[in-house]
Design a protein around this nucleic acid. Structure first.
Length: 275
DNA sequence: AAGCTTGACAACCGCCGATGG
DNA sequence: ACCATCGGCGGTTGTCAAGCT
C-alpha cells in the first residue's frame, strides 16, 4: 500500500520505508534526539530528506503511538471536534493521545466524513420537527402525536427533551411528570406549563456541579452521541457551543445553563433557539 | 476469471509562521 | 526591516487490497 521506493534526481530516496531504514532512524533518534531534522538523515546515514524522516518518526515510529482503527469513541470525538474546529487535524489529534493528525485526517476522509454528514442530516430533520412541535405547543395543548416531554435527569442537571417522534404513546400527565420529582402535573396544563414547572424546580436547586466538557476525560468506550452534554454554570458559548445533538433512536439532550434568568425569561423558547 | 471501482493509508508537496542572523 | 532556514500543517497523490460487475 506504500509507494514504490525510488531515488529522485538529487539521489534522495522517496517512497515507502524499509524495515532497515526504520531501525536506523529509530536508533538514531533514541540516541541523539531530533534537534535538526534537515541534518538528521546525513548523520544517521539515511538517503532521505529531513521532512521524510520527521514524517516517518511522527506518524509511525514515535513511541506510544496507537496503531489500528480508531475506536467508536475516538471517531465520535473526531466528528464532534471537527464540527467545532474544522480541519484542524493537529489540534484534534492532540485530544486523542497516541493518534496522529495524518491518521485522523485519513480516517475522516475515508469514513467519518460520510458519517458526519448523515448525522447532520438527521439532526436537521429533528430540529425541524422540534421547531414544529414547539410552535404547536405554544398555542395549543399538545395533540396525541405532537408534544414534547421535559424531565429532569436524576443525576444530571440537564433538561431532557423528547421529541414527539420518540414518544410513541399519546400525551398524558403521567408521561410528562415521569422523572421530574415533585413537579406536579395537571391534566389541564400544557406542555409548556409542565416544562416551566420543571425548569423552576431546576432553577431553585442551583446545584449544578461543575462538569466541564473535557474530551480527554471521555472514555473510549463512551458513546459520545449518547452521553448527555453537560456544561458548567459559567457557560462560555464560544468555547462550548450549545448544540442539539441527534442521537438516532436515543433522546435529545439540551443544556441547563444554570442561569435562572434564562428560566424567568421562558426557558423553553430560549432553549429552542438554535445556534 | 478479468476488469473496474472503491476504500484505506502511507507518503509527498507546497504553504505558512516562527525564529535567528 | 529583511531574508534564509526550519518545523509544522493540511491538501493531495500513489498504491494496494477488497469488493463488485
Amino acid at each position: 500500500m506504500v509507494r514504490t521506493p525510488f531515488y529522485d534526481q538529487n539521489g534522495v530516496k522517496k517512497g515507502g520505508w524499509s524495515q532497515e531504514e526504520d531501525n536506523i532512524l529509530r536508533a538514531y533518534i533514541e540516541r541523539y534526539g531530533h534537534s535538526n531534522w534537515r541534518q538528521l538523515p546525513k548523520y544517521a546515514g539515511l538517503s532521505r530528506c529531513g521532512k521524510s524522516c520527521r514524517l516517518r518518526w511522527m506518524n509511525y515510529l514515535r513511541p506510544n503511538l496507537k496503531h489500528g482503527d480508531l475506536t467508536k469513541g475516538e471517531e465520535d470525538i473526531v466528528i464532534k471536534l471537527h464540527q467545532e474546529l474544522g480541519n484542524k487535524w493537529s489540534v484534534i489529534a492532540a485530544k486523542l493521545p497516541g493518534r496522529t493528525d495524518n491518521e485522523i485526517k485519513n480516517c475522516w476522509h475515508s469514513k467519518l466524513k460520510k458519517r458526519a454528514k448523515q448525522c447532520e442530516i438527521l439532526t436537521t430533520a429533528h430540529e425541524t420537527e422540534l421547531k414544529e412541535t414547539i410552535e404547536c405547543t405554544s398555542y395549543n395543548r399538545p395533540t396525541a402525536d405532537q408534544h414534547i416531554e421535559i424531565t429532569e435527569a436524576q443525576n444530571h442537571d440537564v433538561v431532557i427533551v423528547k421529541s414527539s417522534s420518540m414518544i410513541s404513546s399519546s400525551w398524558s400527565p403521567e408521561t410528562t411528570s415521569s422523572g421530574v420529582g415533585d413537579c406536579s402535573s395537571t391534566g389541564g396544563s400544557t406542555a409548556i406549563d409542565h416544562a416551566a414547572q420543571s425548569c423552576q424546580n431546576l432553577s431553585m436547586k442551583h446545584s449544578v456541579t461543575s462538569l466541564e466538557m473535557n474530551f480527554e476525560e471521555f472514555s473510549i468506550n463512551d458513546d459520545f452521541w449518547t452521553t448527555p452534554y453537560v456544561v458548567e454554570t459559567t457557560y462560555n458559548q464560544d468555547s462550548y457551543p450549545n448544540y442539539p445533538a441527534d442521537h438516532g433512536e436515543h433522546d435529545i439532550y439540551y443544556n441547563y445553563y444554570g442561569d435562572e434568568n434564562l428560566f424567568d425569561q421562558g426557558i423553553i423558547m430560549g432553549e429552542f433557539q438554535y445556534q
